[in-house]
Computed example of a mutant assay.
Amino acid sequence: MYQYDCIIIGGGPAGLSAALTLGRARRKILLFDNGTNRNRVTQESHGYVTRDGIKPHEFKEIAITELQSYPSISISDQTVIEIKKDDQQFVVNTSNNISYLTEKILLATGIQEEFPIPQIRQYYGKSLFSCPYCDGWELKDKPLAIIAESEAHINHMTKLLYNWSQDLIVFTNGHQLSDIIQNEFQRKKIMVYTAIIKNLHGDEGNLYSIELETGENIVRSGGFVVPSFYRPNNLAIQLNCQVDENGGIITDNAGRTTVSGVYVAGETEKAGPSSLMIAAADGFKAATSINLDLTLLRF
């Protein structure tokens, strides 16, 4: 059976950053990446200094090229389906029926989105987005839609987006807003439609208008949505990692979970969205914890 110091599951910025750090620390690393990272649908990634505007696949290609400089790092596109604790080690099983042994596990599989309206996915990453810091600049001063169902999310996203564009219309998809929020938006000339959304219209990912069940068809050229997020696998549950009341994986703030030998980095930890830069920093932080723990164990 193949033996590693650490197996990293997830090839997003957190996993790639951790692999680089551990490879440079001369640890034998296996990185699993099955290509399902959620930013694969994005045309450009923003906010990562020296890489602003880079395409996600180019970002990953550069990272993998860098990792290949370190002979102790291996990369696999297999999907991990099960992890079991075996004495002081972990057995990692893949969908290809291959098993691997490792002393440490880093979970960096990220999260995935669920949308209140299925058609959103046709436009997501091209004209509809979820993070103003990532994509607000490209949509500045355009007629934008805000699609969300929770009043707290609507209030936060609308106020935030007003800095990028003041031509905003809120779509609640059948949910009502309090009079306080309605009046506050009205003072800023922000319209609110509470009718259920019937359809989105556009072409090749470019949004043109939003059709409501009332028959109204409101012209918009893009916008922002507030999806719900979930972890794409139950590996943390398999490993008995403790979670908090919000579903976040409990850590020591340095990547260590409540299970000895299991670490977490990036969006996997909080089951919420993060930027490339923050996720990469989380990967670095978790990797230094892993390397320190291996050092103290073996010295």
Rank of each mutant, 00 (worst) to 15 (best):
T172A: 00
T194K: 05
Q182H: 12
I197W: 00
Q238H: 09
Y70T: 10
D135T: 06
W137T: 01
S99M: 05
L207W: 02
E267Y: 07
T102M: 02
G53L: 07
F299L: 09
Q242C: 05
T94E: 03
R26W: 06
A152V: 10
G35P: 02
T268G: 06
S165Q: 00
N37I: 10
I8V: 05
Y124Q: 03
I250V: 13
F284A: 14
Y124G: 04
S76L: 04
K55C: 12
I249Y: 00
L101D: 01
L128D: 01
E138L: 10
H156N: 05
D282S: 15
N246W: 06
I54T: 12
L101G: 02
C131V: 09
F299V: 08
Y193E: 15
Q78W: 09
Y123R: 06
T102K: 02
I190K: 03
Q112C: 01
C131N: 11
K104L: 02
H153L: 08
L128T: 11
Q166T: 10
S76N: 05
F32R: 06
R27L: 07
G15W: 00
E184Y: 11
C134P: 07
Y208C: 05
S228W: 10
P13M: 06
M277F: 07
L296C: 06
T102S: 13
G248R: 10
R27W: 01
S72Q: 13
N199Y: 06
E114P: 00
E245V: 10
L235V: 11
I290D: 04
K140D: 10
E58L: 14
E138P: 09
E103P: 00
A281C: 13
N291E: 14
C6M: 07
P232T: 10
I83A: 09
A148S: 05
I210C: 00
F224R: 01
I105P: 01
S17F: 09
A265S: 12
A18P: 00
